[in-house]
Amino acid sequence: MTDAVIHILLTLLMPPLLLGIIGKTKALFAGRVGAPILQPYYDLAKLLRKGSVFSDTTTWVFQAGPVVTLAATLTASFLIPLGEHRAPLSFSGDMVLFAYLFGLARFCTTAAALDTGSSFEGMGAAREATFACLAEPALFFSLAVLARLSGSLSLTPMLTGTVATSWLNSGASILLLGGSLFIVLLVENCRVPFDDPTTHLELTMIHEVMVLDHSGPLFGVILYGAAVKLFVLGALFTDIALPYATGITLVDWGLFIVAMLMLAIGIGVVESVMARLRIVKVPQMLAAACILAAFSLLLVLR
């Protein structure tokens, strides 16, 4: 029970911190002081209080999009185990629901983007939907590997307990899987090298261009939803990459938080040292991620 409460509180409160850390890491790399680590929280608070401006083209879809997206992402967060702690809800086949909830979120975000009738937003929506088509198979290959290794059909047993032994027994496949999932993590969260969340050129963006016309509280919901998505998929990655646990609940929660912070720093480092890929290169990278994961599956099925 305590674990479930901590799970929910962490999921609700921690995500913007990750954004803050990523921003700080990038600032340090660039030799700047950078915004305070808590800046994303201030931004959210400010946006929730602000008024909003709507395009006269938009309908209810434009307003419902961010809301459903956030609801779907939060629902998915109930299914993912954080560190070595089981998820509040867990049942056989929950990984399918987990992945499809993000599909629903994507449907809503892209539909809301098209509601403005803007070419830029259409372009961003098209890219988001296209890249997702290639990221999904990589995710499912990885899920199949995890299912096979753990002998179970649910995220909690897949990601807790057995991962550490899997590292010893089939390290190669877990390594490939981790690589593939890291690419998926970066694509799904629109990070460099696939998308640049800080660029100011509409033509080159993916996620940020889709939400150009959102403002005020709804924009806050979008930012928060994106942060939660980073948190949830990041938890999926750290569960695999850093599967160590002591068995003492509180220490394990501490370990998980440290792992997530390390992941945020890692993403910050990647963003600082890598250039953005050309858009045409992105599908190649995603195909590579699929092949890594498929290869990993081949190794465990052998």
Binding site: P283, Q284, A287, A288, C290, I291, A294, F295, L298, R302
Partner: peptide, 17 residues
């Protein structure tokens, strides 16, 4: 193209197994 050859390569690897 490169992506198709990659995919064919993946299939061939699977067949190799």
């Amino acid at each position: 193209g490169y992506v198709p050859t990659l995919l064919i390569g993946a299939v061939l690897t699977a067949l190799a197994f």
